[in-house]
Design a protein around this nucleic acid. Structure first.
Lengths: 194, 194
DNA sequence: TCAATTGTTGATCGCTCAGTACAAAACGTT
DNA sequence: AACGTTTTGTACTGAGCGATCAACAATTGA
């Protein structure tokens, strides 16, 4: 026996939900909002995902698989200058953050601020994302150190962690300031330290 | 004629509200929670502060005046090593963040993540706090550079911004990880860059 | 064609939300 | 002790919340 097929794609619905959680955060997003944005009725939404929180978790996973994964790809070692790659990562994100009229910032960072400490599952999802970036940064920096482009006064992991921290701080700063010069100072200072 | 006097201290009530917003964020905190925590009845609370959001703004102001101001004081230039002062600032905050079972992190950073972009007033309050720290850091770093303790390859303002960004990133990281070693790597890397 | 299963729809559930209304209470002055 | 003023406690409001449910639709193997 085969049942009635779904009229929507799970991925598309999660994408839409993700956008909404990204704009408004978890608590401020209502199930009504989610229905309107995804086009689904209440029943379908709950039948497919179970609860608002479960859909939130799916959204964070999807954010990691799409947005964050793209970023990791850009960090994969290749021919060019490692320093330039790291600088480009920060600068591209500054431009994207300042362009965004909704000032959404990074969904994972927002989730860390709003929810972490009260939802273990969210904490763990965000943590994994952080680890993935740390790992990719360390790998790239290791290459830069091996070729002699980067200083070896810090271990690749240490340097990666320092860079990552500055990068996250940068994205938080970009939520409340338009001052491109201030943000670029962070980039220059951080990249110079490597 | 003289009216009935208040039975509570505004500061104490705002302190209590601040703690609550700090733990749960703005949206997840209910007016009922606020009444219970502050000990005030609904009537008194609304008579004194007008709305939940107004009380939230007062809480952020109070956070700046107490917690953050204390931090600024610790940064005021004095005799010792500038590098040690900056390292101590980060390490003390790591210890405090990891000790906190509620994993509240920094109220201003949480507010930036949850609310900034939708409440201009909150954005502006957080922004001011960020600027204050930036200024104090730049002043301290300028001293360190003048005495020859710190590198002058970055301007004091640039160095301050880089440090500040890493510091905020650190506090976000501390919301989702217990790994003291990872956090200390950030400290070492950042302080070494100065 | 119909049986079995799952998806969809929209009304509805019981609650809780932020905020209000209002009467009683507490004051210093007169 | 009566007055004007503000605070306090509480009941209440309408709206909106997350979640559920039953009736109905769509599917395909039997």
């Amino acid at each position: 026996m085969v049942a009635r097929p779904r009229e929507f794609s799970d991925a598309a619905v999660i994408d839409a939900a993700m956008e909404l959680f990204w704009e408004k955060g978890y608590e401020a997003t209502t199930t009504q909002d989610l229905c309107e944005r995804t086009g689904l009725g209440r029943g379908s939404l709950y039948n497919a995902f179970g609860s608002k929180h479960a859909l939130y978790e799916e959204s964070i996973k999807r954010y990691a698989e799409t947005r964050a994964a793209l970023q990791l790809q850009e960090l994969a070692p290749s021919g060019g200058s490692v320093r330039d790659r790291l600088r480009d990562l920060m600068i591209a994100m500054i431009e994207r953050d300042l362009e965004d009229p909704g000032r959404r910032g990074c969904l994972a960072l927002n989730a860390a601020g709003e929810t972490a400490g009260r939802s273990g599952e969210v904490t763990s999802l965000v943590h994994r994302q952080f680890r993935d970036l740390e790992e990719a940064l360390a790998a790239l920096i290791a290459v830069g150190q091996r070729t002699g482009e980067l200083s070896t006064s810090l271990s690749p992991l240490q340097a990666a962690r320092m860079f990552q921290s500055a990068y996250y701080g940068l994205r938080v700063l970009a939520k409340v300031t338009d001052d491109r010069r201030a943000l670029l100072d962070v980039v220059d200072g951080t990249v110079a330290a490597l």
